[in-house]
């Protein structure tokens, strides 16, 4: 069970959280057209490496937040609040120690 650092509550066990897929995917505009809508709904980056994800501390503060997680090591590199910019990776890796 992962230990996830909620940006509001601190490190908490994975079972309090819900994963909500890739972060920073823009919602399609109402007139975006079929291709753009389908891309926004269904196409995801699925990288081998660090991915930005949406999580919610549902059995905690209830907040949605974003997280950088490495898909190979399954380690969280950083977590940050909605509206904050994605941390740059070099800085975040240093900060990663604190997210363990």
């Amino acid at each position: 069970m992962l230990l996830i650092t909620c940006p509001y509550c601190g490190p908490r066990p994975e079972i309090e959280f819900a994963a909500r897929g890739e972060a920073h995917v823009a919602r399609a505009a109402p007139d975006a057209g079929g291709e753009a809508v389908a891309a926004s709904l269904y196409l995801r980056s699925n990288p081998r490496g660090v991915i930005a994800e949406r999580w919610r501390h549902v059995a905690g503060c209830g907040r949605f937040f974003n997280a950088l997680r490495h898909t190979v090591t399954d380690k969280f590199v950083a977590t940050y609040r909605v509206g904050e910019h994605r941390p740059d990776l070099a800085a975040a890796t240093g900060a990663g120690e604190g997210t363990r």
Partner: peptide
Amino acid sequence: KPDFVGKAGMARPD
């Protein structure tokens, strides 16, 4: 309505 959840999705051709 200018927008609502599903507006763009339900307009897809298929």
